[in-house]
Design a protein around this nucleic acid. Structure first.
Length: 544
RNA sequence: GGGCCUGUAGCUUAGCCAGGUAGAGCGACGGACUUUUAAUCCGUUGGCCGGGGGUUCAAAUCCCCUCAGGCCCGCCA
């Protein structure tokens, strides 16, 4: 059974109405690690719906969290905002300076593009700005309970996390006169006020039913569970470690009279060769960046295919390419009914079929809709090749029609796919192994291969074949049929096996012994390039 | 110190949670096809499922131990 369906099944034992929460601090650029959090939640919600339960996805934006430090992408002017709640900080401009004129705030600045990507991915969560929850007094009861039981809370934190809590600690982080949470010392608790003194010795007080302060993270989290009635929450493995915030949270929430949510810990997404994704170290790929290269269902597929606790080594080259191919092959299996359950299937086989089915189901942008058709197998790779050798879209469709891959006009989806593919190919992200590199002079590898062939056969047929083609290339019509005829006719004339002839030509033009249909490729490149590469090959054979 | 993940064919891996003859892709090899879209089709090859012990009629799967690699426990998902 698919992980999302299993989670839904687990949730069904608790009840039939669920709130699946995802919480993210908008302290910088969002990346596809954050996508995992939201998509994991989204898929669980969908699984609940499919199982006949009520469920909602709640996206809690930790907008009242303080700015921790001046991140590398920020100008040092942000120094003065350290400790400020993110929603009270101006957004950065293009140079990373605080932009006092701009609309919105630091938190919304980073959140908005992320929401656009979510829309494209078919995810529509309910939004809850955490600072608004504080402003409207939703945290008041929880804060009061924790403050009234501060010694028990401190003991529990020490016991579970192993970290000592200093004497005189209060479970509350007030905001000072200057607007920052840093440098304050809480001195007392007089319901509904937390009393404090700042670094300069000035006293003040914060009303816990307002946004004049917040609960520290380890208490803020369980309070959110109670306030929103959270029954399930995916969270990163950092919170899942023993002694981590989930293990303290699940105990602390009992003070508030509710149960902890069903945990769904997930592994982080690594950027291949560069470690964990993190916007603060600039090691990340943004969701919109990824969506520029591949369709949303492929990105969803990445998450649905991998169980939450599985590492994902992400990269924008090979991995995405393989993912695209895998997606297509799953869909082909689905459409051809290979994934239908049969009576004779062993439990192992039926499990695999179910999982594949579900991986496709959760990958769809539109919930409840399954793909109804797709081009023939290998279409992802195929498209990448067509996009490289056919510079205008219409000739791509023409080629696909000719081979029966589409009827009439391409679907909107396919058009989008092609355009993304073109962007990808034009970018540095496209995997080199799939790039068609047209040679104007012969490569060393090709040289070796050609000489070896000569040594084995001891004849000049290849040389003569090349020479005949050069002659033709110089004057012939530079188009498909002429070239195709020339290549094949001369091959026959010089007694060459057709596949051998093609191999020898691929070596010359591409530096490898395979490739796309040559007569289609050649008209896309300047005639002189083809000729110079062939001349190169001839002179090598003459010298040998 | 604690927690989590990974270890299955030359390579990438599915299967493990609900135990029932080890599955796929790529590669390699052989064959068919030939004006070849990184082809296609058919076939072959290849695994003491990291190691050891236990539970069971039956273990890749459950339990214990062990080895190797990766990650997390300072509010970075």
């Amino acid at each position: 059974m698919h992980w999302a369906d299993r989670t839904a099944q687990d949730l069904a034992r608790r009840g039939d109405n669920h709130t699946i929460a995802a919480g993210i601090t908008p302290s910088g650029e969002f990346h596809i690690g954050h996508i995992r959090e939201i998509l994991t939640g989204d898929m669980i919600v969908r699984a609940c719906h499919d199982a006949g339960m009520d469920a909602r996805l709640l996206f809690i934006i930790d907008s009242i969290d303080p700015l921790r430090k001046v991140y590398p992408f920020l100008h040092s002017d942000y120094e003065e905002y350290i400790g400020y709640p993110l929603y009270r900080i101006p957004p950065p401009d293009v140079e990373g300076r605080p932009d006092l004129e701009a609309e919105g705030n630091y938190a919304s600045h980073f959140l908005n593009p992320f929401l656009d990507s979510l829309k494209e991915l078919g995810v529509f969560p309910e939004l809850s700005w955490n600072h608004e929850a504080y402003e409207s007094g939703k945290f008041e009861d929880a804060a009061r309970i924790f403050l009234n039981n501060r010694t028990e809370v401190a003991d529990l934190l020490t016991e579970v996390s192993g970290r000592p809590i200093p004497e005189g600690w209060y479970p509350y982080t007030p905001i000072g006169h200057n607007g920052s949470m840093d440098g304050l010392t809480v001195t007392g608790w007089e319901d509904p006020y937390v009393l404090w003194v700042d670094a300069e010795g000035k006293e003040g007080r914060s009303h816990i039913g307002t946004a004049e302060g917040k609960l520290p993270w380890r208490l803020d989290w369980p309070a959110k569970w109670a306030i929103h009635g959270v029954t399930c929450e995916p969270f990163g493995k950092d919170h899942a470690a023993s002694g981590g915030s989930y293990s303290t949270g699940r105990k602390l929430v009992q003070f508030l009279g509710t149960n902890p949510p069903h945990p769904v810990p997930y592994e982080w997404i690594q950027l291949k060769g560069q470690g964990a994704m993190s916007s603060s170290t600039n090691v990340f790929i943004g969701p919109s960046e990824a969506l520029d290269l591949v369709p949303p269902e492929i990105l969803r597929f990445l998450i649905s295919l991998n169980k939450p606790k599985k590492h994902i080594e992400f990269d924008t080259g090979d991995l995405l390419f393989k993912l695209g191919e895998a997606y297509d092959s799953y869909v082909v299996g689905y459409i051809r009914n290979h994934l239908e359950l049969k009576d004779g299937d062993s439990s192992r086989i039926s499990n695999i079929k179910q999982d594949k089915n579900a991986s496709i189901r959760f990958a769809q942008v539109e919930h409840g809709k399954m793909p109804d058709k797709i081009n023939l197998r290998g279409s992802f790779r195929h498209l990448s090749m067509l996009a490289q050798i056919r510079s205008n879209d219409e000739s791509v469709w023409e080629s696909m029609r000719m081979y029966g891959m589409i009827d009439g006009e391409p679907s909107e989806n396919l058009v989008l796919r092609l355009h993304r593919m073109r962007k990808w190919i034009a970018s540095e992200h496209f995997p080199e192994g799939y790039r068609i590199a047209i040679q104007t002079s012969i490569t060393d590898d090709a040289k070796q291969a050609i000489l070896i062939r000569k040594d084995i056969t001891m004849d000049t047929r290849i040389r003569d074949y090349y020479a005949a083609l050069v002659e033709t290339y110089e004057t012939c019509k530079w188009e498909y049929q002429t070239l195709q005829d020339a290549i094949c006719d001369y091959a026959r004339e010089y007694g060459l096996d057709l596949s051998e002839a093609f191999k020898m030509l691929y070596l010359v033009h591409l530096g490898q012994d395979y490739g796309p249909k040559l007569a289609t490729l050649l008209p896309e490149i300047p005639r002189e390039h083809a000729i110079s590469a062939l001349r190169d090959a001839i002179s090598i054979l003459d010298e040998a």
